[in-house]
Write a protein that binds this DNA or RNA. Structure first.
Lengths: 123, 123
DNA sequence: CAGGATCCTATCCGATACTG
DNA sequence: CAGTATCGGATAGGATCCTG
């Protein structure tokens, strides 16, 4: 990290850094590291997916949380949403360049964890 | 922290990965990406810190959450805890090799976000 | 299929008080 | 200093029902 990041204090008496909650980056960090955000991002790294494909890929996620997570990620500019006006309607999600940028360290993180912790004793 | 992971059985032909399981890696991911986990890890990358130093470094964190986060991270083998039997007692926290391994992508993630989102216009 | 609205519970997390 | 224990408000998140 940039060494000076933490103490980016603005006013005396009011300590003010990214570790605290006011920084806009903090919101992105929160979304990315939210319970489901990381999985959505990693899932979409491979290829674009539709809503139900995402839901199946990330088993355990509820539709509500998927929609909510997706919305936050789209707003943050990490995920791109494409609606095809067919019948029935198809919505495809994919990563933006920013999303792909963040997907890398996220995948690396995930990778390092699983490399160290064998997923299943049975294989 | 979040231990309420969906229990899912392995079915033949069914994809079974860390995305939707009680895989041990999932717990680590949850701890690392917990509200405070990432900041503790990043803080400790620079150098070892004592409890109160961590608390001051990560402004906004309560003692309860710091202790709780630290405990989880120590249990996961990411953080090392050293007690010096002095008076008053001193406890120093530092990263294990595993912790340092994970700190890298975490820092990279954080770095890429802040690089894109300038923390403060006035800063 | 893709999601919004609602209800409700689990948990997170901060404040406070106390211990060694 | 370095925590632990407890309480209570806030919120995250699941289940279900409903719509275009």
């Amino acid at each position: 990290m940039t060494e000076g990041v933490q103490h980016r204090q603005a006013e005396p008496g009011k300590r003010y850094d990214v570790f605290h909650t006011d920084c806009p980056a903090r919101a992105v960090v929160d979304h990315v590291t939210s319970r489901w955000g990381i999985w959505v991002l990693i899932s979409l790294r491979r290829n674009d997916l539709r809503f139900y494909e995402l839901r199946e890929s990330i088993q355990g996620i509820s539709e509500k949380m998927l929609a909510q997570t997706l919305r936050a990620l789209v707003q943050d500019g990490l995920v791109r949403r494409e609606v095809e006006p067919t019948t029935p309607p198809q919505v495809t999600y994919g990563l933006t360049e920013f999303g792909r940028e963040l997907g890398e360290p996220l995948t690396e993180l995930f990778d390092r964890i699983t490399r160290r912790l064998p997923p299943y004793s049975g294989g």
